[in-house]
């Protein structure tokens, strides 16, 4: 249902073994809270991203539950320790059942 949804992530290209790096993610999404009403008084149905996860080589780095109070275009910044090269996988779960994914590789410098 949500239109124009677009995930973006920023991950350093490389890290030293054991280094803690910062990851930034943003997804364009209206995050309709389900609390607002239309001009005709009817409730606008809730439509939010309700969960976000990040995995590194299949191991969960962060698993976030998002609530209706989170504003438009949720931005999530967090840290991860890199022990080996591989892929970061980012997943956003939409109320409407859509799942958005992005993958970014990291190498050991």
């Amino acid at each position: 249902m949500a239109k124009d949804v677009k995930p973006r992530v920023k991950v350093p290209k490389s890290a030293a073994v054991g280094e803690v790096i910062t990851l930034k993610t943003l997804i364009s999404h209206p995050m309709e809270s389900g609390q607002r009403k239309n001009a005709d008084g009817s409730l606008i149905p809730r439509s939010i991203i309700n969960r976000f996860t990040c995995e590194l080589n299949g191991v969960m780095v962060i698993d976030v539950t998002l609530e209706p109070a989170v504003s438009t275009n949720p931005y999530i910044e967090f840290e991860a320790r890199v022990d080996a090269a591989g892929d970061f996988k980012f997943t956003w779960y939409d109320d409407d059942g859509s799942v958005y994914e992005d993958v970014k590789p990291i190498v050991i410098a």
Binding site: D4, K6, R8, K10, K24, L26, S28, N73, Y75
Partner: peptide, 15 residues
């Protein structure tokens, strides 16, 4: 650019 939310719209324009 990553912190600039306007870039989302640049990406959409590109699509």
């Amino acid at each position: 650019d990553f912190d600039n939310p306007g870039m989302v719209f640049v990406d959409r324009g590109l699509d």
